[in-house]
């Protein structure tokens, strides 16, 4: 059985992947409990589409704070982080849902939703092609294949994801046995 996967290709091949990196388009939302409350109360729940760079050098997933706040999220804590300067700095910690489109060869397989703590960081003076980083706290739930020679990458193996804090939402509900046509 084929695993669901998110496939990315960065042009031009192969230097696009070198210069830009494995950037994934994701949908960022409030976590499920907040989303359900907002849907009941307002009939809508905010969502933004952003790009995140898969970064094996980042221990945690980080996203620009203005993007997180645009969803009405408020910090649930602060965490000390440190960059190459080695000077620790407290940054706000948010809780958010990150949804990634997944496919099985030839068809759409819905999305994998990753609900986790996310560090809010300041926006760079010069905007990047991405608004944050998918760190190793995300990668621990998936396989990540980097094909530098042909400028592609894949995030694979949703079954491994389902057992974690991530849940998969398939495009179609499974067919109940009573709904299946009988074959002669």
């Amino acid at each position: 059985m084929a695993s669901a996967r998110h496939s990315g290709r960065v042009l031009p091949v192969p230097m696009g992947l070198v210069q830009i990196g494995p950037v994934v388009e994701v949908k960022l939302r409030p976590p499920a409990i907040q989303r359900e409350f907002l849907l009941r109360r307002d009939g809508v729940s905010p969502e933004v589409t952003i790009k995140l760079l898969v970064d094996t050098g980042a221990q945690r997933t980080v996203i620009e704070q203005v993007v997180l706040e645009s969803l009405g999220l408020t910090p649930v804590s602060m965490v000390p982080i440190v960059g190459v300067s080695q000077v620790p700095e407290d940054r706000p910690l948010f809780y958010a849902a990150i949804a990634i489109g997944m496919g099985i060869p030839g068809k759409d397989a819905g999305e994998a939703v990753f609900e986790r703590e996310v560090v809010g960081v300041g926006s760079p003076q010069r905007p990047n092609a991405h608004q944050g980083l998918l760190g190793r706290d995300f990668l621990r739930f998936v396989d990540f294949h980097y094909h530098g020679n042909n400028g592609t990458f894949e995030i694979v193996d949703v079954p491994a994801v389902i057992g974690s804090s991530v849940r998969k939402v398939t495009g179609k509900p499974p067919t109940h046995p009573s709904q299946k046509k009988h074959r002669r």
Binding site: V79, V82, G83, V84, V121
Partner: peptide, 26 residues
């Protein structure tokens, strides 16, 4: 904003993160 969610554990070491470079924290 009247609460925080924390784990009762020894104080955590600062998280190393390359975002320091990407987001001008350094």
């Amino acid at each position: 904003s009247s609460y925080i969610v924390e784990q009762i554990a020894p104080p955590q070491e600062p998280t190393p993160i390359t975002a320091g470079v990407l987001f001008g924290l350094c």
